[in-house]
Each structure stands twice: as C-alpha cells, then as structure tokens.
C-alpha cells in the first residue's frame, strides 16, 4: 500500500473539509452541547423549562447520572440491548459474509445472483413501522398465521401467546433486526470487494488458491477497512436500536424489549418530560459506545501498519537522539 502523503498540498485538506466543519458547527454542535449541558440541570420538556444547574437547586451535580445508572429500568434496558444486538449480529455477519463470498466468487458464477443481491437488501426499504406491524400480525394471539402453522403441524395444541413471553419477544426482535440488516451489511461488503483490484484475484487463482482460501486469505484482508466500518456502525446502530422494539412490543411484556434508546425516549416524552435525565442517559450511552468502539478498533487495527508506524517513530527518535 502506498501511504506517501503529499505535504505540499496540505492547504487543500483544509479547504475540502470546510463545508463539513461549517455545517457541523451550525447545525449539529448546538444540539450536542445542549445535550451535554442539560444533563447537569433539572430541565423538563414542559413545566420546568428554565435552565438551572443542579447545585443551584440544592442537588448533587451528578444526580441525573446516578439516577440513571442505579435505575432498574436502565439496567434492564442495557442488558436487553446487548442481548438483542448479539443474537442478531452474529447471524447477520455470518450470512452477510457467506453471501458476499458466494456472490463475489469469480469461478462459480451463481446464475441469477444479481436478482438475489437486489432482493436481499429489500427488507431495509420498508419503514420499520410497517415491518413491526406485519410481524405483530404474523405472531398474533390467539389467532394469527404463526399460530395456524404451529397448530397445523401439531407442535402445540393450544395457541401460543408469543408476545407474553420475554425470551420469545427478544428472539423475534433479534430476528427482525437480522432480517432487516443482513442485506445492508452484505451490500456494504460487496461494495468493498468490488473496489479490490481484480488482478489480485487473478494472481490468487493462478497460484491455485481454493475458493475458501481466496475468500479468507485474499478477500477479507482486502476489505478490512470496510469490515471495520461495518462492525463499528453495527455496534453503534445496535446499541441505538429503537424503531423495531418500540413498535413491536414497546413497554409491554414487562419491558422485555426495552432498549437503552427507548429508555432515553421514555424519560424525555412519557409524561414527566425529564429532558435532563434523558440527556444524562445519552451521555452515559455515548461513553459506553465510545469505549466499546475503541476496544473494537484496537482489535481490528491494521497490525502491519501499526508496526510500521512504530518502527518509523523509533527511527525518528533514534535520529533525533543522534543529532
């Protein structure tokens, strides 16, 4: 990989980044700063709408944060989120990689693979609200298609009340998430593969690499950076999960599908309009996501490049020491 950068052109770096930075400063910065600030106040969305910092009303500065962390609902929401994310993420990644391998394989050209590629992303096009309603209908009780199937096959004599059992609810939500997002992940990965120079594959073929060898030893290392993107965004997206669990189960089934993002919205909009506490919970989630992402990035770092950088640093140090 050629990593030589052209220092003399550095002013274009600034120029090209200006639109992004300006827009960010105007439209995104205020809401973010606002969020981080109100976490330390007792601001409500309605009623108490004055910005008062907690110490000025005789409360500890971190009251909102301790309230959130010690709350049973938040802890439950966090465990749920992590559980649902893991159960959906592992098969999602597995199938996305599998289909990427099949569809980008140059030797066994699967007939009609174009159609399959197009179809697999389709679930992502429909709004989550519609998807949730359709699945709710599918798992209806005491009547519904899933119950019809179960009773026809004789798996159960009585209709099953799917949305009354916590683990079933979480399982269904994880399945919906998997089903909506494996195509998205696949499309990203395929885009990465398309970006690889075909000569690399030709060379691998000439060397007599098997399909599996080509995929694991050539394709995956070449799309490492896209893979990192997929992992990071999936982690962020998973921990911010909202639409499907909210519309599929909401607060029902003893909060079996409550996610942290739902918890945050509940704080903000459920009657008490606890904007301050919602902001504090957001900051807490931000810190958690940040830590997890850093861990992920550390494990996924380009080891060769990191080594190279380290060697260069040492060389520079040594050179500096010599002079």
């Amino acid at each position: 990989m050629n990593n030589k950068k052209l220092v003399s052109y550095s002013k274009y770096g600034y120029i090209f980044a200006i639109p992004f930075v300006l827009t960010f400063l105007i439209f995104t910065l205020y809401p973010i700063v606002y969020t981080f600030t109100i976490g330390f106040t007792d601001l409500h969305g309605a009623g108490q709408t004055e910005l008062r910092f907690l110490p000025s009303v005789g409360k500890p500065l971190f009251q909102n944060f301790t309230d959130v962390i010690t709350s049973g609902s938040f802890q439950k929401a966090f465990t749920n989120t992590v559980r649902i994310w893991i159960v959906n993420f592992i098969p999602q990644m597995a199938f996305a990689l599998l289909f990427t391998a099949w569809f980008t394989d140059r030797r066994t050209k699967l007939k009609g693979q174009g159609i399959f590629k197009i179809l697999f992303y389709l679930p992502n096009i429909i709004t989550s609200a519609t998807v949730a309603i359709l699945f709710l209908a599918l798992f209806g009780y005491p009547k519904g298609p899933m119950n019809d199937i179960i009773m026809a096959l004789g798996i159960s004599k009585k209709a099953v009340n799917f949305t009354a059992s916590a683990s079933t609810v979480r399982g269904i939500i994880a399945f919906i998430q998997f089903w909506m997002w494996y195509g998205y992940t696949m499309v990203n990965l395929i885009a990465g593969v398309i970006g690889i120079n075909p000569e690399i594959f030709e060379a691998a073929e000439l060397d007599g690499a098997s399909k599996a060898q080509t995929f694991f030893l050539v394709t995956i290392p070449c799309i490492r950076s896209i893979l990192v993107y997929v992992l990071v965004t999936s982690l962020i997206g998973g921990l911010n999960m909202f639409d499907i669990p909210e519309m599929f189960i909401g607060k029902n089934c003893n909060n079996a599908g409550l996610t942290t993002n739902m918890y945050i919205r509940n704080q903000a909009f459920l009657g008490s309009y606890l904007y301050a506490r919602a902001a504090a919970a957001s900051v807490i989630m931000f810190i958690i996501i940040l830590i997890l992402c850093l861990i992920l990035l550390y494990f996924m770092r380009d080891r060769d490049e990191a080594k190279l950088a380290k060697i260069r640093r040492q060389e520079r140090k040594a050179a500096a020491a010599r002079t």
Binding site: V160, N161, A164, S165, G250, K251, N252, C253, N254, N266, L270, G271, S272
Partner: peptide, 21 residues
C-alpha cells in the same frame, strides 16, 4: 401521567394473569 402509568399497569396485570407471564 395516566397514559404511561396505565400502560405499565395493564402490562403488569397481564404478566400476572397469563400463564406465559
């Protein structure tokens, strides 16, 4: 606050009264 409290309440009742709860 009724809308919210009611939804928690109705759910708690279901969790108690339904065999799957």
């Amino acid at each position: 606050y009724d809308e919210t409290i009611n939804s928690f309440f109705r759910d708690a009742v279901r969790q108690y009264a339904l065999p799957e709860g």
